[in-house]
């Protein structure tokens, strides 16, 4: 499944003065100086026109939008409950209908549908405030995520799918915040580990079907963000388990096993199956950070070195970061070859 990358054309990118500096010695100085003079020349009239037109239109629209918000805020108290609730619902419906008319093949269409998804959250918020439903935060976020899921599915738009995943994560986080099963520090360790497994499953799905299913999902940014969303929380959970004294063995087993399994899987996938140096960097520095925290625990809690421990930590960090940098440099050569 290893992808053969097409040969890059470094001359196809927008020209910058720093690129010309890198070509000193390769091209004659006279050519580079003429190129530098061309780069420093002001843009043509068409470009100014496009920039000023876009900038002033955005400024005007923002100010008019702010005027509407101020007008609504001024009259808010005088509005009835139904009117308050109708405002975001009408805006949401308008955006969704306009997006549907434009079609999901056009950028404008998916942006309008994305806006409708955002306004759905605003409607839920206004509903909660107006009728004082007493719902928990996780219920609000979970309802929001469930309600907009069909639109996210229809849009098949990567920049909308990823915030939706983030919303699901927030719902999970808020849920673990208010539920503690068996006194197991659910929020800090068990909940985080379960969320991580869910994110890892989504990462696998994105890698497997993302390019075919999602629009604007053909770059590497989607899996990379998901990779971070999977690794970072469980790394924090492992730090927490390392520093915790109560039931440490059990908590460390849960978070350590989750983190270890995830990192091993990512190491295999991103070194052998689909080489990706960014994901390997995430793996390496997750290990470095856990070993740093573990080292700090051993040095400061389990020994009586005193102030010398701070110096020992400096040496430990230099050794870990140096080791990680050497390993990543070797992987970089391996992937570039």
């Amino acid at each position: 499944m290893s992808d053969a990358a097409p040969i890059r054309d470094p001359l196809a990118t927008g020209a910058r003065a720093s690129d010309l500096e890198r070509l000193r010695g390769t091209l004659p100085d006279a050519v580079l100086e003429r190129a530098a003079a061309r780069l420093a020349a002001p843009p043509p009239v068409d470009q100014w026109r496009a920039a000023l037109s876009l900038g002033l239109a955005l400024l005007g629209a923002t100010l008019l939008g702010a005027a509407v918000i101020h007008a609504v805020a001024f009259n808010w108290q005088a509005m009835g409950h139904a009117v308050r609730l109708c405002l975001p619902l009408v805006a949401m419906t308008g955006c969704a209908l306009a997006g549907w008319r434009l079609g999901m093949e056009r950028l404008g269409g998916v942006i309008l549908l994305s806006l409708a998804c955002l306004l759905a959250g605003a409607a839920l918020l206004v509903h909660g405030q107006t009728y004082q439903t007493g719902a928990h935060a996780w219920q609000l976020f979970a309802t929001w995520a469930v309600l907009i899921a069909p639109w996210v599915w229809v849009a098949r738009f990567a920049p909308l799918a990823l915030p939706w995943v983030f919303l699901v994560n927030v719902a999970f986080g808020a849920f673990w915040e208010s539920h503690d099963f068996l006194g197991l520090r659910t929020r800090e360790v068990v909940g985080t580990s379960i969320t991580t497994l869910a994110n890892a499953a989504l990462l696998l799905a994105w890698e497997r079907w993302g390019e075919r299913f999602l629009r604007a999902g053909d770059g590497r940014w989607g899996p990379r963000v998901l990779g971070l969303m999977a690794v970072v929380p469980v790394t924090f959970a492992t730090w927490w388990s390392l520093l915790e004294t109560d039931r440490q063995a059990l908590l460390l087993t849960i978070s350590g096993l989750t983190l270890g399994a995830l990192l091993l899987a990512m190491h295999h996938a991103y070194r052998r199956v689909r080489p990706d140096l960014f994901q390997l960097t995430v793996v390496a520095f997750s290990v470095v950070s856990c070993l740093t925290v573990g080292g700090a625990r051993v040095i400061f809690r389990l020994t009586s070195i005193g102030d010398g421990g701070v110096l020992l930590m400096a040496v430990w960090v230099v050794a870990l970061v140096g080791g990680a940098a050497t390993w990543l440099r070797a992987r970089h050569r391996e992937i570039s070859a």
Partner: peptide, 8 residues
């Protein structure tokens, strides 16, 4: 920006 190829 014009590409580096165009500029050179």
């Amino acid at each position: 920006r014009p590409t580096l190829r165009e500029t050179l």
